Amino acid sequence: MKATVKLYHDRQDDYSDVEPDQTKEIEVTEECLSDRPMFADEEWIEADDVYNHKYYAIDCECDEAVTLYVHTNDSVHDPDDWGRAAEGGLIYDPEDDYPPFGCEMWGRTCFWVKSNA
């Protein structure tokens, strides 16, 4: 099963008529990788630059309830140390109609999606 992650790169009051700046289909995993992401097919490295700094609004669509995890790493000294998820519990359920989650992020940025089943 796959989830569609949508990224918006600016702040909006209403995203209903705005196309996302980026979308990606991500394989949904059954494993809990929240402390140490395993970089395989289930992940999406959106930014691979420690100097990246953007505002994002994040939305996720899937046929079942899933949790989106967002990891960041702005370390020049240890680029392999992604640490704990910066956002480790963004729950998306097809029955809910919440607006995209907005946040500012620095450094490398990685997303992955876990099934809630």
Rank of each mutant, 00 (worst) to 15 (best):
D17G: 02
H71F: 15
A57F: 05
M1L: 06
A3E: 01
E27Q: 08
N52D: 15
T23L: 01
K24S: 02
D21T: 04
E61N: 06
P37E: 11
D21Y: 00
R36M: 15
H77K: 06
E61F: 03
Y8I: 01
I58G: 00
D13R: 03
D78T: 07
T29F: 10
E30R: 14
E25P: 00
Y15V: 02
E19A: 12
R11N: 01
E46P: 06
P20F: 01
T4Y: 00
K6E: 08
I45P: 07
E31C: 10
I58M: 06
T67Q: 13
P37R: 10
H71W: 14
D14E: 00
A3P: 04
P20R: 04
D74R: 05
S75W: 01
D21V: 02
P37F: 12
L7P: 00
Y51E: 13
V28T: 07
T72M: 10
A3R: 04
C62H: 13
M1P: 07
K54S: 11
S34V: 08
L68W: 07
D80Q: 06
K24H: 00
E31S: 14
I26V: 08
T4N: 08
T4G: 02
D13H: 01
K6R: 11
M1K: 09
N73R: 04
E61T: 12
D81G: 01
S16R: 08
L33C: 12
E43G: 13
R36G: 14
R11M: 03
H9Q: 08
D21C: 03
D17T: 05
V70K: 07
E19D: 10
S75R: 03
G83P: 03
D81N: 09
V18M: 01
D59Y: 07
V76D: 07
M38S: 14
D80G: 05
S16M: 02
H53S: 14
A47R: 15
E64S: 12
Y51W: 13
E19T: 10
N52A: 15
C62V: 11
R36Q: 15
A47E: 14
G83M: 05
D10C: 06
C32T: 15
L33I: 06
R11T: 03
T72D: 13
W44Q: 12
K2H: 12
F39P: 04
D81Y: 07
K2V: 11
D14V: 01
K2R: 13
Y51P: 04
E31L: 14
T23V: 07
S16F: 00
T29Q: 13
R36A: 15
F39A: 07
E30L: 15
A65Y: 10
C60M: 08
